[in-house]
Design a protein around this nucleic acid. Sequence first.
DNA 1: TTGGGTTACCACGACC
DNA 2: GGTCGTGGTAACCCAA
Lengths: 82, 82, 82, 82
Amino acid sequence: MANDVGGVAADKLRTFIERLERLAEEKKGISDDEKDVKAEAKGEGFDLKAISIILKLRKKSPEERSEEESVLAVYLAALGMD
Amino acid sequence: MANDVGGVAADKLRTFIERLERLAEEKKGISDDEKDVKAEAKGEGFDLKAISIILKLRKKSPEERSEEESVLAVYLAALGMD
Amino acid sequence: MANDVGGVAADKLRTFIERLERLAEEKKGISDDEKDVKAEAKGEGFDLKAISIILKLRKKSPEERSEEESVLAVYLAALGMD
Amino acid sequence: MANDVGGVAADKLRTFIERLERLAEEKKGISDDEKDVKAEAKGEGFDLKAISIILKLRKKSPEERSEEESVLAVYLAALGMD
DNA sequence: TTGGGTTACCACGACC
DNA sequence: GGTCGTGGTAACCCAA
């Protein structure tokens, strides 16, 4: 292959890297959007930490959420922290 | 406001959360794409760790890259690691 | 100064690095101990994720814990997730 | 067992948690020491980022370090970044 | 048993 | 001085 450099297919390597860079750019754009939304929410007085917890809870199915909470409740009771 | 619950504007809160969830989904899609590209590169024999370093280097301007490397070179020389 | 290499006090640099390496070793030893304890707890049937949450809760003062929980409760109610 | 709470051996749970808390405290003390050393080095004009790289390099064996660097060099050459 | 993905944590830097 | 955002690090889990 004519485009080999040190046994490496230079064109293929370059293509992979450019694809990854393009995806990284898109991801950064979305992260910026997220920051904007959070700043807007914060500006209206919402608690960002609580919102983060909400987002995490909504990612779990109700079953696994209640399962986790019941284990935690038992442990808290065992420790007298309830 | 009719949609207040415990002093919180429920509709606004819900809107913020849904916007954030949508952005998180998009970001996940892109992360999946990145994984695909990396798997493809790996399948063709490329070294993923080296590619990651390349991506980091290309994010830096040439000036800051050479600046950082020259500091590091001095330290390595001072320690006899060169 | 006789021990300067490229304008860098080589002895001082070496000393800082060795102090940091020593501290890193100690920290690694403790991390290994933590892993052992967790493995032991897991081996006796305890839920590690719940234990992690317990540890986090105990690090917070009761006031900030109840403050955070009440905000979260209001948001969950506003979203009908309670 | 008399100390069971909700089917959980409360004493065992408490012991595990206290052991983990003690280890976490020790680790925090060491982290604080690391911060002190870094601040001292920075105060004498050393570049913390370069020192971090040095610490990482010294953790790798010379063989794996040169192996990684040679792969990277080939890739950089293939991309004309050298 | 090892490698990869996900996740959480922590220290650093910047900004206010 | 304290807070925010970010990057890097490491631990846990799973799958092969």
